[in-house]
């Protein structure tokens, strides 16, 4: 017994010593690092305030007629889409006992790649009811379909912030389904026609911190509002500093746990928001209106590419386990896109 106890005690001491050495080494490293900027230090926010009046997307499209015809198929437009009566998911719903009424009531759908959810307008302003049953497109069958029911608060609690526009903090009511121009371009004044810099995310307004805040309001999946604890920001208006109220875990551990699609977003957001870099933002690779990733090729071997690509290969090779189709299907704990 003594011998065993001695061995154990010795092992414990060794472990403690090793941990101490690691801690000292780490402290040394931290001391050597330059001070990190506080992500919440710059800019302003609208947390807890009502949304300001803004020009709505339909007013924008009256003039921007080059955008309208293609916008209907844009992913940012399809965060909620009109229910297609002949969709396979509705056919599955109709097979449930009493399913016809759920299918008939369904006005909108959410999710196209992996899981489809069913929605209908609530009686309340700016609300949608979410059906508890979901349709798995991979498996071609319904889930949670034992006793389907319309849920009145699920969409507002979990989805509205990124699938609808201008979700009010108190009522959680949205102003419009899917994402209006306002979501990314902000409250654009009429004078933008004389000065494009008045439009956020225009060719003249690509300030890295603002870009990361705008895209990050939805694409930093796993973040939470400090004030509401909801998985989407509290009254974020494009141009605000997202990180004044939106909490994101930028630790290595959080990175490791995230799928590749989230990793590259976290990496870029950390580079900009925490480390103060500004060379690379979402806009370097993503053409949102054109839905093109052709610009990917421009960032040959940048660090952010290594979340999916093998370095030093000109991004020609994907890491093991990464393929475009898999990448799109990787979902976070929050949702799928």
């Amino acid at each position: 017994m003594n011998r065993i106890a001695h061995v154990l005690a010795r092992a414990a001491l060794l472990v403690l010593a090793a941990m101490g050495a690691v801690a000292v080494a780490t402290m040394g490293q931290e001391k050597a690092r330059p001070a990190r900027p506080d992500p919440a230090a710059w800019g302003a926010d609208h947390v807890g305030q009502p949304f300001p009046p803004y020009v709505t997307g339909d007013e924008c499209l009256f003039c921007h007629r080059d955008v309208g015809p293609a916008w209907g198929q844009n992913r940012h437009q399809l965060t909620i889409r009109q229910a297609a009566p002949d969709d396979v998911s509705l056919a599955a719903l109709r097979e449930l006992p009493g399913g016809d009424s759920f299918a008939d009531e369904t006005q909108f759908m959410l999710g196209a790649e992996r899981v489809t959810r069913f929605l209908k307008k609530s009686k309340e302003y700016g609300k949608l009811d979410l059906l508890s049953a979901a349709f798995s497109r991979r498996e071609g069958q319904l889930k949670n379909d034992d006793s389907p029911a319309w849920q009145t608060s699920a969409f507002a609690d979990r989805c509205a912030g990124c699938h609808a526009t201008a979700v009010e903090n108190k009522s959680q009511a949205f102003a419009a389904i899917s994402l209006d121009c306002f979501t990314c371009h902000g409250d654009v004044p009429l004078e933008h026609t004389k000065d494009v810099s008045r439009v956020l995310l225009s060719s003249k307004t690509t300030e890295a911190r603002k870009v990361i805040s705008i895209c990050g309001q939805c694409h930093l999946r796993g973040g939470k509002s400090k004030s509401t604890r909801k998985p989407y920001p509290n009254t974020f208006v494009a141009g605000d500093n997202l990180f004044r109220d939106f909490e994101v875990d930028f630790s290595d551990a959080a990175f490791a746990a995230a799928p590749a699609i989230d990793q590259h977003i976290y990496l870029n957001a950390r580079d900009v928001a925490v480390l103060g870099h500004s060379e690379t933002t979402c806009l370097n690779c993503h053409d949102v209106h054109g839905q093109s990733t052709a610009k990917h090729q421009d960032l040959n071997d940048a660090a952010i590419c290594s979340t999916c690509h093998v370095p030093q290969t000109g991004n020609a090779k994907l890491r093991d386990g990464i393929s475009p189709s898999q990448r799109l299907r990787m979902h976070s704990r929050v949702c799928d896109y």
Binding site: G57, L61, G68, W71, Q77, A176
Partner: peptide, 9 residues
Amino acid sequence: ASQSRTLGH
């Protein structure tokens, strides 16, 4: 109808 984002119908 393309002049509207979601309300073209």
